[in-house]
Design a binder for these strands. Structure first.
Lengths: 193, 193
DNA sequence: CGTCTATTTGAATGTACTCAAAAGCGGTGG
DNA sequence: CCACCGCTTTTGAGTACATTCAAATAGACG
């Protein structure tokens, strides 16, 4: 059933009884995105937090020169959204679109607040989700500071082996912060060993 | 009095009555650090979250070549620590030491859990602190991807004008992810305009 | 098949680093 | 108060990493 994955995701951190999990899923809305379809555009208000049950999303910006930079990828079992926009009801900094046909479960801020009230354990749940995301980001900042593009690419391969298969090189280069041309050169160099 | 700053910091997000704030401060321990003294070393377990009431700390790593990379600075009114180590009781990834004589208020994990139990509002408080930190980091990742060293330096100057005055250039270069030599060249170039 | 986009390749350029040496600056002890 | 030491910052030359531009090739999709 559709809610299996998200309930497993929740169960990693908090225990729910049937009433609680029924209430939780009653607050979720399903949404389907075609490849290249936007979940969020820069400047819009991000009205939902989104749990991916199928497919792949990217969160990115476009800089002054029109170059895209990917802040994060999301695949099955990941939460994505523009947290700042969601929380403060201000225009989003990021674009989010689908790299594959994707299905998400969405929860609005109002529903999230209802959830916090009725099942306060979810405060803890979302705190933990956030903590993990925070720690992952901190490591990424550190990696970007410490490593060359080649090292970052090799790290990416081991850290996200699924993604390497699924997303085009162009997207990987936008995540690593290098040009597609240079990534292509790196790959050639690596193969020749 | 010593707890003014931290109580103001808390009051930004949640309201406490006297009993609650008394209980909160009763869980805090004060610690003084001399310049260059360590609050945490890589490999140690981070046993406290730390609120800076005076001074300046840096959270950093040392890469394979012995080069330091600063993940964040902390000054008055900031919370610092190695969150992952603190939460999971595993060895810390980061060093934290003092760039100036510094005073912090510390709370242990046990005391934090007591606090959560007795004053559940603090769950919300630390969630908000974390949210803000998360968002700031996300912007930093994006900036590191989108901007050249010169642009990042200029951004740093406007974002942390206090720090520019207080910390040596060497530390700023370690934060920006460039060599001190190159930062010196950038500064010369910028002055010559 | 044709069109559109992604990837590869090569040459020229720019950005940032290394190494080495000199100059500046702060603290300490005589 | 000055001299010296250690550390930071500056300067310059040579080098490595990564980008831009342009063109060719390969792949994906209707």
């Amino acid at each position: 059933m559709d809610f299996d994955l998200i309930l497993q995701n929740v169960a990693k951190h908090i225990q729910l009884d049937t009433t609680e999990s029924d209430f939780f899923v009653s607050l979720l809305q399903r949404r389907t995105l075609k490849r290249k379809e936007f979940l969020l555009k820069q400047g819009d208000i991000c009205k939902t937090e989104n749990f991916i049950i199928k497919g792949c999303l990217r969160t990115y910006t476009i800089d002054a020169n029109g170059v895209e930079h990917i802040v994060m990828f999301g695949i099955e079992d990941w939460w994505v959204g523009d947290l700042y926009s969601f929380l403060t009801h201000t225009p989003a900094h990021y674009f989010i679109d689908a790299l594959e046909d994707t299905e998400v479960l969405q929860i609005t801020k109002d529903n999230l607040n209802r959830l916090y009230e009725r099942v306060p354990k979810f405060e803890k749940f979302f705190r933990l989700i956030l903590q993990n995301a925070y720690i992952a980001q901190q490591h990424r900042i550190n990696q970007n500071l410490s490593f060359t593009a080649e090292q970052r690419y090799l790290k990416f391969l081991t850290q996200y082996p699924q993604l390497e298969q699924r997303v085009p090189q162009k997207q990987i280069s936008a995540f690593l912060g290098i040009t597609p041309v240079f990534l292509s050169m790196l790959r050639r160099k690596l193969v020749n060993r």
